[in-house]
Amino acid sequence: MMEAKQCQGCQQMRDPRYEQLDELIKSYQDKKGALVPLLHEAQEIFGYLPEEVQRRVADGLGIPLSEVYGVATFYSLFSLKPRGKHKIGVCLGTACYVRGAGAILAELEKQLGIRVNDTTADGKFTLEITRCIGACGLSPVMTVDEDVFGRLTPEKIKEILARY
């Protein structure tokens, strides 16, 4: 079956984010230790680090793509996949874990139809695991962006998701 293919180059030329990225790369050229902060800012522009961004960073800094890719996969802060509008974090710290965080996570996976580290097809939610967020008194807890939800049971999940 034929698949319609869009010309990536033209798309990118129209995409002002790439102009922003190129400016950013210029500002980091000739600076030592530029890669991590540059990737960080690039991710703020794009929400993640698509391959084209990694290539431009590599070419701009004069380093191999393998090095950029290595750093991008080393730090969990960086994502190579598009992320959803809202980021859900399920705490799997010790307290939450013993108080049933596993069931919360399973319910979220079921309701969203995705696995951990994936994003829903509509781009709304990304599901992630966090370590202890320091709210053990409310365990088990999850976060949606900056909001914290505590004393969770699987039954509460549907209603929480509906708020976003």
Binding site: I63, P64, L65, S66, E67, Y69, G70, T73, F74
Partner: peptide, 8 residues
């Protein structure tokens, strides 16, 4: 530079 460490 086509070889590098990937993941952690």
């Amino acid at each position: 530079g086509v070889l590098g460490a990937v993941e952690r």
